[in-house]
Amino acid sequence: MDGTTRRRDEAARAANSPHVHDFGLLIKAATRLEQRIDAALRRECGIGHTMFEVLIRLCRQPGEAVSQRELADDLTLTSSGITRLIDRMEEAGLVCRVPSPGDRRSVLVETTDHGRSVFLRAVAVHSEVVERYFVAPLDRADYTRLTGALGEIHKALREG
């Protein structure tokens, strides 16, 4: 067997390895679920999944305003990406920017009443999609094991 054929066979074995396959299933499932959520949120609420994630963060602590930097870190966006997103959300009346009381150079973001109303509708839509495609396909014991395992993976990644 020549070197090219051997590398081709090794590459095929590697591409079909259990770790590559299993991680691929996780990514594909998460991506498709996110696409379903995004489509439903856009159709039913007029916002995308990323805007929904911002609203989750802003609604988590009533009355809390969060810096754009914190939002960018939470959502793994660049500073320019979060600025453009917040611009669009502000234009839609979902959020507003307020000066930071402790740092005149910093701007905080908070939800508006309209943003909270949209968020509450979006939570219901999100919940329906998650129930249908993430919860319902599994029996209760498998779902409990899956969420427990995902929690352990998340913990290992935070610590590592």
Rank of each mutant, 00 (worst) to 15 (best):
A40W: 02
D142K: 14
F134S: 15
A92P: 07
Q68C: 05
R158H: 03
A72R: 07
G115M: 05
C59L: 03
T144I: 13
T5W: 07
A72P: 08
Q68F: 05
E159Q: 03
R104K: 15
V98H: 08
T4K: 03
G160S: 00
N16G: 11
R7D: 06
R13D: 07
E64W: 00
E110I: 13
R140H: 05
G148T: 15
L94Q: 06
L77I: 11
S17W: 02
E131I: 05
M89Y: 12
K28V: 02
G115W: 08
L33D: 00
R60H: 01
I37S: 04
D9Y: 12
A65H: 10
A141C: 09
T112W: 10
K28F: 02
A65N: 14
S100H: 13
G115Q: 07
L77E: 03
T50H: 04
A12G: 05
R140E: 10
E70I: 06
E152I: 04
E64T: 02
E44I: 01
V20H: 01
R88W: 07
Q35T: 04
R104Y: 12
S117H: 12
S80C: 07
D113T: 08
K28P: 00
F52G: 04
A92Y: 03
G48I: 00
R13A: 12
E128P: 05
S80R: 14
V135E: 07
A14R: 15
R140V: 13
L138V: 06
R88F: 09
S67L: 00
R145Y: 11
E44S: 02
P18V: 04
G3N: 05
R145A: 15
R6T: 10
T76R: 08
H154A: 09
L85R: 13
R36H: 11
R7M: 10
